[in-house]
Nucleic acid binder design. Structure first.
Lengths: 334, 334
DNA sequence: CTGAAAGCGCTTACAG
DNA sequence: CTGAAAGCGCTTACAG
């Protein structure tokens, strides 16, 4: 029903192999090129990617697998990646696995069955799946975002989680804070553990004894951040500064602070994580650690693309992107 | 290189047509069925969707096109849709168009070239694209979410935007509020216009004269909501209640209220829109209009699936889903 | 219920 | 540079 390469060939008076070659960027006689281009235009021909994929064993799609589509960090990264991939005519197929190891396996198999050419994975709290090894065995490139997945030979792009924490806490220390609390994320995630580690290292480096009651856990959620902050503020000896380790906990904590009628930074200093709209709407705007989601997405995309195209130089790569601190007014010098 | 239907046939000692029929759920002799199942298991056979798609002209993928992947409403809907589609072995291909009409056209063509079987579209502030008509011409089903797109013959699923506003404002009126402000979204979106309309109708129904200074516009963003609220609170004669018409503006407005050191609901009553985590973390929890994103997503998914499968009964459908009000403590009775 | 065969729309050695 | 031909992994009338 639709117009095929064969129709174009007939109209342009060439063989269909020639049309195919034209489509794939080979040189051909000027004269033929022009006739083919005319025919394509007149007929409104469009390539059939399915047929092409069947022959070339490429689907021109990259799978994206993440815990939740409503996670702002991941979707920001994906947005950037999609832009890069689209430039090369790749589209993205998205699946979420709702932090369930079982669902993760299932989705990975699901996508594999659709012969995706590459995979970008946000593992979150899940572990290296068996299904993932099947990708590696079959030579399908996998790029993992913000996770280490020890023992898994794939490319990985991460931000400097530990260093980000270190510098955030160091900055507080330089402002003469000593009673610095952290609101941690899940410790069964790589980012959660790394960010906690950076906090501990900064304290250690400056010979500050970590205090158990300042170390709280907010599960990376709004409510978690809220409750952790509340607990901190209720302490007989509350911290002078709070550092939260992701976006959602940041706003939960800010709400708790507002509610306690404390002012930032007069009553309590604050450093948040992730730099999205709300961070600057809040008054005062928050000093935060910014993850370069656009760079991460771009890097992830370019890396899969390289691998998909067969360039396996420096495999496996462990690519790091630096966070930066957005300096606003939520930290007071003591 | 990979194992095909032909290998299975050989091993099971049947023709490859028989294997194909088995795969597609036709009945066959018990004896053959068992041998085929064995062969599939032993060989680790997996269908090649590309080849299948080439013959059947179905790619088993549904395109999802939206303005931004970081929009919580849309991603919530998509999450629900993805679940339903995956049950039927469909996957989703996602593109965002960053509120650019041109990009929208481009992405629609891009996806069409990949022979998606159906499309779920969140048009936002964009208009019916030419590319969209090509879908209709080619019989590719399109389901539009939360938009009316007059003149476009497709299925549409929306929430009761105007009625939602009406009821929210009516509730405020019943609590004896008369000075009710609205923070509107973009008026070049369907949802923005409808929600505004419901507000005006409620006032009219209860013979309340709308006041210009109470009608503000926050562009559906955090900052917009913040600034609109600020303006309202600075009024010589400020409203006794504020109604915000989406999630992002709700939190911008709450921040402005906090900042003005006003208490909800003692100093000002408040009804928000959309029910996500933060709504309940805030103190007091906000009374909000909840959009049933899961139902919307499910409905959108089931509708494309029906059409994809050729069931065009009642086409085009205009499906409405009711919002409900989550009653919390942010509204005071005057 | 099943086999043999044609064909979906492309790509790609192989000759020339 | 180009044509003719084989084939990617499936589906589906057509006979039987």
């Amino acid at each position: 029903m639709s117009v095929t390469i064969r129709d174009v060939a007939k109209r342009a008076n060439v063989s269909l192999g020639t049309v195919s070659r034209y489509l794939n960027g080979y040189r051909l006689r000027e004269h033929n090129r022009i006739r083919i281009e005319e025919a394509i235009r007149e007929l409104g021909f469009r390539e059939n990617f399915l047929a092409k994929g069947l022959k070339t064993n490429r689907s021109m799609t990259i799978g994206v697998v993440l815990a939740s589509l409503t996670d702002l960090f991941a979707t920001s990264v994906i947005t950037a990646a999609e832009g890069i991939l689209a430039e090369d005519n790749y589209s993205i197929v998205v699946c979420d696995f709702q932090a369930s190891q079982e669902k993760l396996e299932q989705k990975l198999r699901f996508l594999k069955a659709r012969s995706i050419d590459g995979l970008i994975l946000f593992p979150g709290s899940c572990e290296a799946a068996d299904a993932l090894r099947e990708y590696l065995d079959d030579g399908i490139p996998v790029v993992i975002v913000n996770d280490d997945m020890p023992g898994l030979e794939t490319d990985k792009v991460t931000v400097d989680n530990a260093s980000a924490s270190f510098r955030a806490v160091e900055w507080l220390i330089h402002q003469n804070h000593r009673d610095i609390a952290i609101i941690n994320g899940d410790q069964n995630t790589y980012t959660g553990r790394e960010r906690y580690k950076g906090y501990l290292e900064a304290l250690k480096t400056y010979d500050i004894q970590p205090r158990n009651e300042y170390i709280t856990f907010g599960h990376f959620s709004n409510r978690g951040g809220y409750e952790a902050a509340k607990k901190l503020l209720d302490l007989p000896d509350p911290p002078t500064a709070i550092y939260t380790t992701n976006y959602y906990m940041t706003f939960g904590a800010v709400i708790a602070i507002n509610e306690a009628k404390l002012r930032i930074p007069e009553d309590i200093s604050f450093i948040g994580f992730d730099h999205f709209d709300l961070s600057d709407v809040i008054n005062p705007p928050l000093t935060v650690v910014e993850q370069p989601t656009d760079k991460l997405g771009e890097l992830a995309a370019r890396t899969v693309l390289r691998r998909v195209k067969g360039d396996y130089q420096d495999f496996p790569m462990q690519l790091g992107v630096n966070t930066r601190m957005i300096m606003k007014e939520s930290v007071r010098t003591l």
